[in-house]
Design a protein around this nucleic acid. Structure first.
Length: 420
RNA sequence: CGGGGUGUGGCGCAGUGGCUAGCGCGCCGCGUUCGGGACGCGGAGGUCGGAGGUUCAAGUCCUCUCACCCCGACCA
């Protein structure tokens, strides 16, 4: 993509109405645009990033047998009344409205009821189970206070998966499988080493649940982590009973701030019972279906990653979620320079490499500063100087290492980056 | 929802009740520049968040209200 064609722009200043680092950087670099508190638009570069994050999640969900669907955001009142969750006193996150005919509807903040209801049409026999269904969809939550940029929004992109199992054993096996898939997701996103499976309260579903918490000083949660055992305990369930249950020594725990980047629940038959989803077993008997739900806040993850992978010059995206692997900074408009930069851009594009071409007629300082603010992993400088040396100057965003490379060396490096 | 803070061109900001509301960035035109956000000249762009009030006179004072940020509560 050529920067002269990109409508979004970087700014010399960061917005004054944001304090969180993720929002300040993402807005300054032109990845997102603020619509209102807790509601953001994704601009071209931001859309690529969030899609890449969503894709990693999608791949791991598919790998454990998840089937992707897309459910409606508009929710009818009747279904939620069956489970007792329509009342604002029970769920205060609802955005509610009315149809033209006066009937009440809500904007989906979670989907246990509709997915369970939907499956009544398709699941009758033990032969139909288990089923694992997920979606990546915009959720609406009427947060009392939106904050921290993308980390706590009122409109958020979320992956929610629901499992439907024949019995406890089958459910528990999948719960474990999903846990491992989650850990893989965080590892691929580059935060595996600071993300902990964390024991947490189950809310109204069950007594306990598991969260995935990424250590961060901007986190809203306080957890106690056992780094050796690679597990955490949320402050809200930090008590002797839980410690004994997990077999952890209080001495080995460290108090940390963390961001909840995932949450998985065992739902039991709470919703299947309420909505009447059952199956017939081999012997012709009607049996309960056991459910689980598994959420990952995709937009929150983008905020966390922006926050985490950044320095005083701007964003520092990991290669697998960066909007492009390379940004070509063409310094000057001189004929040979332009020709070489154009050629390199076309070559990389034809190779299928994601590359941003800074073909703007602006000064060198601005191009280099922007390449850093945008956080593109590698900057390739093409200038009169590099043309004369018959080399490309390649700079690593993360550590500022700069190397002069021939065209072949550069292409080889790019090839190695894209195969990893 | 309680407490605190902030609203002035696209962005960042200044503005003691008193002239036609300024500055920097950005934007448009011309020229000189060209490896870390250059410079000269010319130009466009404003319901001062909104409503009401006080006053000869309000961006500035008062009341109400809306929005945004932070702390807290909340987060199934």
């Amino acid at each position: 993509m050529r920067l002269t064609n990109l409508f979004s722009k970087t700014s010399k200043t960061s917005p004054s109405d944001e304090t969180s680092r993720n929002a300040r950087l993402l807005i300054q670099a032109g990845y997102i645009h603020k619509e209102m508190a807790g509601v953001y638009d994704y601009l071209p570069l931001g859309k690529i990033v969030i899609d890449k994050i969503a894709n990693i999640v999608r791949e791991e969900m598919n790998a454990i047998g998840g089937q992707e669907i897309g459910m409606s955001a508009l929710q009818g009142k009747e279904l939620w009344e069956k489970s007792g969750r329509w009342d604002d006193k029970v769920v205060d996150a609802w955005f509610k409205s009315k149809l033209a005919n006066g009937s009440e509807v809500g904007l989906g903040w979670s989907h246990e009821e509709p997915i369970t209801n939907m499956l009544i049409s398709y699941i009758q026999s033990y032969k139909d189970l288990p089923v694992y269904v997920y979606q990546i969809q915009t959720k609406f939550r009427n947060e009392l206070r939106a904050k921290s940029g993308l980390m706590r929004g009122r409109e958020l992109l979320m992956k929610d998966m629901y499992s439907f199992s024949k019995d406890k054993d089958e459910h528990e096996k999948f719960y474990e499988t999903a846990t491992n898939a989650y850990l893989k997701v965080y590892k691929r996103l580059g935060v595996g080493d600071i993300t902990y499976k964390t024991f947490a309260s189950g809310g109204i579903f069950t007594k306990y649940s598991h969260e995935f918490q990424t250590l961060s000083e901007v986190g809203e949660d306080t957890i106690y982590v056992d780094k050796a055992k690679k597990l955490g305990i949320n402050k809200e369930v930090f008590n002797d009973e839980v410690l004994a249950h997990l077999g952890v020594n209080k001495e080995h725990l460290k108090k940390e701030r963390a961001v909840e980047v995932g949450n998985i629940f065992t739902l039991g038959s709470r919703y299947s019972d309420a909505l009447g989803l059952r199956y017939t077993d081999k012997d012709g008997a009607s049996r309960q279906i056991l459910m689980g739900c598994y959420g990952i806040g995709i937009s929150r993850l983008m905020g966390l990653l922006a926050e985490h992978f950044a320095d005083d010059k701007g964003l520092v995206w990991p290669i697998n979620i960066a909007p492009a692997i390379i940004i070509i900074a063409r310094l000057g408009e001189e004929n040979e320079t332009t020709k070489l930069a154009d050629e390199m851009y076309n070559h990389l594009t034809m190779m299928g490499v994601s590359v941003i071409y800074d073909d703007r007629d602006v000064r060198a300082g601005q191009k280099l500063t922007d390449s850093e603010l945008l956080g593109i992993p590698y900057t390739v400088v093409v200038s009169e100087k590099t043309v004369k040396n018959k080399k490309f100057e390649v700079r690593n965003r993360k550590n500022s290492d700069t190397k002069n490379m021939s065209k072949d060396e550069l292409l080889k490096m790019v090839a190695s980056l894209t195969t990893n």
